[in-house]
Amino acid sequence: MSSESKPIFSVKKLVKDFPTAGGPNSIRALNDVSFELFSGEAMAVVGESGSGKSTIARVLSLLHDKSAGDLNFKETEISGFSGEEIKRYRQQVQMIFQDPYGSLNPVHTIYHHLARPLLIHKKVKSKKELPDKIHALLEEVGLTPAVETAKKFPFELSGGQRQRVCIAKTLAIGADVVLADEPTSALDVSIRLGVLNLMQKMKREHNVAFMYITHDLATARYFAERTAVMYVGHMVEWGETEDIIQDPQHPYTQLLISAVPSPLKRHQKEEKSLHVKNKDIPTWTASSVGCPFVGRCIHAMDKCSQSMPEITKISEKHFVRCFLHDGSGQ
């Protein structure tokens, strides 16, 4: 297994605070987040809106500065990068955005969108090579006939086709790590699979490491070997995707999985198996303490609101942060 090899990206105890206007307390979007990415493997990050999923991708792609923690890419801390180092880093770590309608500039052709990364990172020796290289890329992502597609403007393509152009961009750069921020959420269900399969191909053939941010557990299960569950900026449970879905340990993961519509349980009632106390999602600040899920958790104990539980190992590759499982509970 690749998990015995060295991780390409290693994140330890990452914290990200956003200052709030006027208030003394800043919003803590990420708190104590640690994970590793491996080449040729995908890690899904799941959680509801506002759980900090996208913030991770934005910190990792240097769009936001971290507040604390270690970000090691190929065993080098990335937050001190400047100038040429940033350029070299961008050549290896790329991002795919959620909204394919917004991530391509409406005034430029597809040719321009693919030519720029090739020119910036000097992937072609001369401009003469550009057309051939671009057409090859378009064919690789299944946008044929490539010559015609290159001449088109983004508005002439469908959402799925645009997302393929974005994937072609990351291929053009030859990234080792791709941070995919909900790449299929804005797409029709019928074309999601095509985009997922394309990313699957990149993962296998180009040995790319993926961070797959989603709120769709079904696609996470299809695409990602490992999964991390986020709640209000905290990683509450992580491990092999199958373990997480078949044997969820944290009450929040159980809630998340029970919310997936299942053809076997028709007319299922919302959150039937878990009576949630209230549905309010807390705002986490730098001075908040305890487990963020305590307000909604039916198993909540006194100590849950006093401190965040430590990491408990359920099995070899399955971890959870909950007092129910650390042996001290019940």
């Binding site: 940033i86 350029k87 955005f97 917004g102 500039n105 961009k169």
Partner: peptide, 26 residues
């Protein structure tokens, strides 16, 4: 604030090129 500007930053476009080539034509 549009994502294509962020995308241009992520692929490593220089600042003046983002202004002149990505923002101004719009």
């Amino acid at each position: 604030e549009k994502e294509f500007v962020t995308a241009a930053e992520v692929i490593g476009e220089s600042k003046w090129r983002i202004v002149v080539v990505e923002i101004l034509p719009n």
